[in-house]
Simulated scan of single mutants.
Amino acid sequence: MHAPVTRRPNTVAAIVRTAALALLAALAVAGLSAGPARAQDGDVAWTVRTASNSYGDDRSSFSYAANPGGQVEDTMIVANRGKDPLDLAVYAADGFTTGTGQLDLLPKGGKSVGIGAWVRVGHDRVTVEPGRTAELPFTVSVPDNATPGDYVGGILTSLTQPDDTEGITVDRRLGIRVKLRVSGELKPGLAVENLSVDYDGPGNPFATGDATVSYRIHNTGNAILSARQTVSVSGPFGWLRTQAGTIASPPDLLPGESWKVTVPVHGVAPAVRLTATATVTPLLTDASGSTTSLRTIRATARGQAVPWTLALLVAVLIAVATGAFLLARRTRARRRLREEARVRDAVEQALLDQGTRAG
C-alpha cells in the first residue's frame, strides 16, 4: 500500500523504513498474516479482524454478493494491543494489483469508483483504549446502475505518526479486503496482446540458442481471473518445436487489469523463421473456492532465428561460386573470340591465295 510520507532530503534510512512499512500494510490488506503494526518505540500495536455474524466466523476477508441497488451491512473489529490510546483514521478504498502481483489499495484521497465509493463506515475516526476493542459497522450500498461483475477494495485503519529521529511522517495502515460480486450477466474474458519473440543464438551455426517470448494478459471481462499458461517455439511448418518450462501463473487480475509475461525458451534451433505460440487458459474461481477452466486462448507471433555465421559462410560460398561461374564464362567468351578470329584470318588468307593463283 502507498503510505503518504513527508521527509527531509538525504534520509536514506527513512526511505528504507517506509518501504518496509508499506510492505507490511500490503500483506495485511491482502489477507496474509502480517501481525499487528507497531510504532518505533514498540508501545503501540493494533489488529483488525472481521466480526462473527451471519456471514461467518473467523473470516480472513469480507466477501459478498449483491444486486444493483442492494445493501450489505457488516462490522470490522479493531483491537488495541498497546499501552496507549489509539486514534485511527478509518476509510475505504478501491483495490488494484501491483507490479509484484500483490493486492494494494488506493491511498486516502485517491479516486475510488467501486468499493471505495460504495462503502460507508459509521465513523471516519475511532479511538481505542489500551486492551480494548472497537466495533466499526459499515454499509456497502451498490448503485442501481452498477455494472455486473467483481469489485475488490478494502476498509483501512490508519495511524499517522511523526518520526523525529528520521525527520518523516509515517502512515501505518492495516485493513481488510472487501470483495463484492454484483449480480447480473458474468462475462469473464482474457486476451493475449503484443505477443513477440526474440532469438539469441551462439556463434556456432549448428548449436541451439535461447528465445524470449513476451506478451501481455489483459482481463477484458467483468470477473476476477487468473490463468494457466504454456509457451512453445517452432520452426517452419511446425518443425523443431521446443516447449518452455513451467510458467508461473499470473496473479488474480481484476477486471480491466493487465499483466506482462516474459518466458525464456531454451534449446531453440536456428530455424531461420520462428513461430511462438502462447496458450492461455483462463481460470475463474467462484464464491465456494472452486476453480473452473474457461475456453483456451491461443496467440502466435513470428520472428527471425538466422544462424549468422552459417549465413555468412553460405554467402561466401555463393560469392565464390558466382565468381567462378563468371570467370569461366569470360574465359569461354575469350576462347570463342580467339577461335572466331583464327577462322576469319584463315578464310581471308585462303581468299588471298585463290586470287593470286587466278592472276
Results as ranks from 00 to 15, higher is better:
Ser52Lys: 13
Gln161Gly: 03
Ala26Pro: 00
Ala301Tyr: 00
Thr139Tyr: 05
Asp104Phe: 04
Asn194Leu: 11
Ser226Arg: 05
Ala34Met: 14
Pro205Ala: 04
Gln349Ser: 11
Gly154Pro: 06
Asn10Cys: 11
Thr11Pro: 09
Pro236Asn: 07
Asp286Thr: 14
Arg8Cys: 08
Phe206Asp: 11
Pro264Met: 09
Val29Glu: 04
Asn219His: 06
Ala311Trp: 10
Gly101Ser: 04
Ser158Asp: 03
Ser33Arg: 13
Val12Arg: 11
Ala315Arg: 05
Gln40Tyr: 05
Pro68Cys: 09
Asp345Ala: 11
Leu283Trp: 03
Lys83Gly: 10
Ile297Phe: 02
Ser61Glu: 12
Pro36Ala: 15
Thr18Leu: 07
Tyr151Ser: 02
Ser214Gly: 06
Val119Met: 02
Thr296Glu: 01
Val29Asn: 00
Gly110Thr: 06
Val233Arg: 08
Gly303Leu: 07
Gly238Phe: 07
Thr157Arg: 00
Thr18Glu: 02
Thr50Phe: 03
Glu185Gly: 12
Ala244Leu: 13
Thr322Met: 11
Arg241Val: 10
Pro85Val: 12
Ala93Tyr: 00
Ala25Val: 07
Ala45Glu: 12
His266Ser: 15
Ala248Glu: 12
Thr279Phe: 04
Val192Met: 05
Val347Thr: 09
Arg344Asp: 14
His218Trp: 10
Pro188Val: 06
Trp46Pro: 03
Asp163Met: 00
Ile15Tyr: 10
Asp163Phe: 00
Leu352Phe: 06
Leu313Lys: 13
Gln71Ile: 14
Ala65Phe: 08
Ala315Leu: 04
Leu284Asn: 02
Ser258Asp: 08
Asp164Gln: 14
Ala66Cys: 14
Thr242Tyr: 05
Arg334Glu: 11
Ile224Ser: 05
Ala34Ile: 12
Ala34Tyr: 12
Thr133Asn: 07
Asp150Glu: 08
Arg338Glu: 10
Thr220Pro: 13
Trp118Glu: 03
Val272Trp: 08
Thr291Trp: 01
Gly203Leu: 12
Asp43Arg: 08
Ala134Thr: 07
Ser54Ala: 12
Gly184Val: 03
Arg120Lys: 13
Gly189Pro: 03
Leu351Pro: 00
Pro85Cys: 01
Val44Ala: 06
Thr242Ser: 11
Glu129Pro: 11
Gly110Asp: 04
Arg298Phe: 02
Gly149Met: 01
Ala324Lys: 05
Glu135Phe: 09
Ala328Met: 04
Thr356Lys: 13
Gly256Trp: 09
Ala117Gln: 01
Gly149Ser: 09
Ala191Tyr: 02
Met76Pro: 03
Tyr64Thr: 09
Pro36Val: 12
Ala30Asp: 04
Leu274Ser: 00
Pro236Leu: 05
Trp46Met: 01
Asp43Tyr: 07
Ala191Gln: 10
Gly109Lys: 02
Gly70Asn: 08
Leu312Asn: 15
Ala227Gln: 00
Ile247Met: 02
Ile155Lys: 06
Val29Ile: 06
Phe206Arg: 11
Ala333Asn: 14
Thr97Asn: 09
Arg273Asp: 11
Gly267Tyr: 06
Val5Lys: 02
Glu257Asp: 14
Gly256Tyr: 10
Gly95Arg: 05
Gly116Arg: 02
Leu312Arg: 15
Arg336Phe: 11
Arg125Cys: 07
Asp345Val: 03
Val128Glu: 01
Phe138His: 06
Thr230Lys: 01
